[in-house]
């Protein structure tokens, strides 16, 4: 079974909250810490990403959200 992981760059996120609204599993949350630009960036608070890409397409920043696919290899 495939697993997914979402990563949000704290220094690139502007905290608009679009991804938080869009995530079907509710694993993203508006943070309380501010980044260097002064925005309260979004944090990944739970596991359970299904790799739908909603957060990536909702995000207005080119590189703030990255979704990884994790594959198990037999070794």
């Amino acid at each position: 079974m495939k697993r997914y992981r979402v990563k949000i760059e704290p220094e690139e996120c502007k905290g608009c909250g679009r991804c938080v609204l869009a995530c079907p599993r509710g694993i993203l949350e508006q943070g309380t810490h501010l980044n260097e630009m002064g925005y309260a960036y979004v944090c990944v608070t739970k596991e359970g990403c299904i790799g739908c890409g909603s957060c990536f397409y909702q995000c207005p920043e080119p590189g703030a959200v990255t979704v990884y696919e994790i594959t198990e290899t037999e070794d």
Binding site: G63, T66, V67
Partner: peptide, 15 residues
């Protein structure tokens, strides 16, 4: 062992 690859990420058309 696990391997990660990017499913959704920054496009190469951007700098």
């Amino acid at each position: 062992m696990t391997e990660e690859h990017v499913k959704f990420g920054k496009s190469k058309v951007f700098f």
